[in-house]
Amino acid sequence: MKFLVCISQTPDTTAKISFSADGKEFNAAGVQFIMNPYDEWYALVRACELREALGGSVVALNVGPASNETTIRKALAIGADEAVRINAEPKSAAFVAKQIAEYARNEQFDAIFFGKETIDYNGSEVGAMVAEILDLPYISYASKLDLNGNAATFERDIEGGVEVLEADLPFVVSASKGMAEQRIPNMRGIMTARTKPLKVVEPVPFEEQVETVKFSLPPAKAGVKLVDPENMDELVRLLHEDAKVI
């Protein structure tokens, strides 16, 4: 089995978000970056578990500049066998999808893994785009994945429930909570990660169809209005008359 896991680098969950004065760019100064949690905890770990059970290899792929290599080495420390970095700024979901698909096209992967979304741009777009470019089935928000021979079974999160389904290999999957448990890399993993292959590939040309006009911060809340805990009628009145939500 040959698995591809696409990993993204995102600001840490607790990072303070700010932008350049013209609002055009994210201000990365002082921001700690991490591997996107869904990619790391669920997609990568499940791919490694399946490789451990069935044999084969796990390739971790990141579209990003050389400064992302710390994150890529972490994926190797967690258990990926080799890594690929496509040497470009990940400008948009469509750009990233194009790069991944062109790389994967001739590599005969049995499955391509994504996290369900990134915690920065929250698009949930790349997996579906890659699946379409490569004409593959796409199973999104999978909280469970098992392989048996040439078929895979999944559970996927839908509004208010789960869907149980089956697809043949190869496929594209996006992982949500439940697919695996987070793994902390051990010392041996961290040591061997240093010598595992990390190949750098140049990007293919791409024409953007979406421009960023600007980023801004949401308007600050007016501040909390405290209500006397003895007087819940007053809270109900406020929700009805002022907030108009009941």
């Binding site: 915690i119 741009y121 980023f215």
Partner: peptide, 17 residues
């Protein structure tokens, strides 16, 4: 417009296609 960074910011995009 859409919210980004898990609700911590708003982005404005123009579609040119």
């Amino acid at each position: 417009k859409k919210t980004v960074f898990s609700g911590k910011a708003i982005a404005e995009y123009r579609i040119t296609s």
